[in-house]
Write a protein that binds this DNA or RNA. Structure first.
Ligand SMILES: [Zn+2]
Ligand SMILES: [Zn+2]
Ligand SMILES: [Zn+2]
Ligand SMILES: [Zn+2]
Lengths: 159, 159
DNA sequence: CGCCGATTGATACAATGTATCATGTTACGA
DNA sequence: TCGTAACATGATACATTGTATCAATCGGCG
């Protein structure tokens, strides 16, 4: 548990903060206390959090947090490409590859909630070809795949 | 316009009703007036409708329709595999391949809202391999891809 | 300091989805 | 045909998720 958190937090500091600072310079925006706080809460989880779960974690530290504020911070972080929104669960998760905006795939375990991020070239190529075949120019986009992770499968096999 | 509606409606009668009747026999359920009505409204559209858009279309014919009723009908139709839910837009659309439950892909034009359904083997194979590589046993699942369809691209190119 | 754009706070509201329980409907067997 | 049990609906209230608005505040800069 401790390790998972540290891995996430470590990950965050590597590319995410640089990316955010670059974006702020570029656009005259600011990496504020509130935005950092939302980022920190997401970095402390291996699973995705809903906006209201985030709000509940923020309030003890800052009693004036509001839904609108959380959504605004999330919008900022998503535009910066360092947070993904999981449409299938209406929740948000830290990007594991924040070096550049990207498509990719999120594999979500429906038992334990764990999310793993991938950037699989064969999948990207196949969807690209499908788009061409049907005349669509597709947006880069993070695909959501649900299933059961290895650990949960092992656990359920052992009863 | 007329033609699009008829194509959809024609499609519906082919496989969808059989499939619903089979499912009802199997499970002791019923293909009721309300469920048929929701199906009919979805069949009349080439784009996806939200639950509340459906409700607005149902009310003139049946003033007692309620959100809960619409969601119950949609749940039934989704379990039967003849309606898909678009998570990216929180809306619902008739399945174009209702012969059997399936994964597949929905290509959604973000300009005109048109949705095209595909069952692309290369995409399915690539995602399956990705799942294996990361130890996930993936659920069959309809992927949502957004972009711009050929017609809308042509239109915007011509200003 | 005093300005200006970016950000937040506060509040209210919109949109989407669910729980509950009483009532109605249908298939099926006595 | 009638009773009845399972299935389905109506009505209502509520929960969750997401936005709009506008005034107040912050932070850098001349
Ligand atoms: Zn990412
Ligand atoms: Zn798991
Ligand atoms: Zn389908
Ligand atoms: Zn289009």
């Amino acid at each position: 548990m401790r390790r998972a958190v540290k891995a996430r937090a470590g990950h965050t500091s590597e590319g995410t903060l640089e990316r955010l600072e670059a974006l702020c310079r570029e656009r005259g925006q600011r990496l504020t206390r509130q935005r950092r706080a939302v980022l920190r809460k997401l970095a402390a989880e291996r699973r995705a959090l809903s906006a209201y779960e985030l709000l509940a974690r923020l309030r003890p530290e800052d009693g004036r947090s509001t839904p609108a504020g959380v959504y605004r911070a999330l919008e900022f972080l998503m535009e910066a490409g360092v947070v993904h929104r999981l449409e299938s669960t209406r929740s948000f998760i830290l990007c594991e590859h924040p070096d550049a905006p990207h498509g990719g795939q999120l594999l979500i375990c429906r038992v334990c909630g764990q999310v793993v991020e991938a950037e699989d070239e064969p999948v990207a190529a196949a969807t690209g070809r499908l788009g061409e075949r049907l005349g669509f120019s597709l947006d880069p986009r993070v695909l959501e795949l649900t299933g059961v992770c290895a650990r949960c499968r092992a656990r359920s096999a052992a009863h």
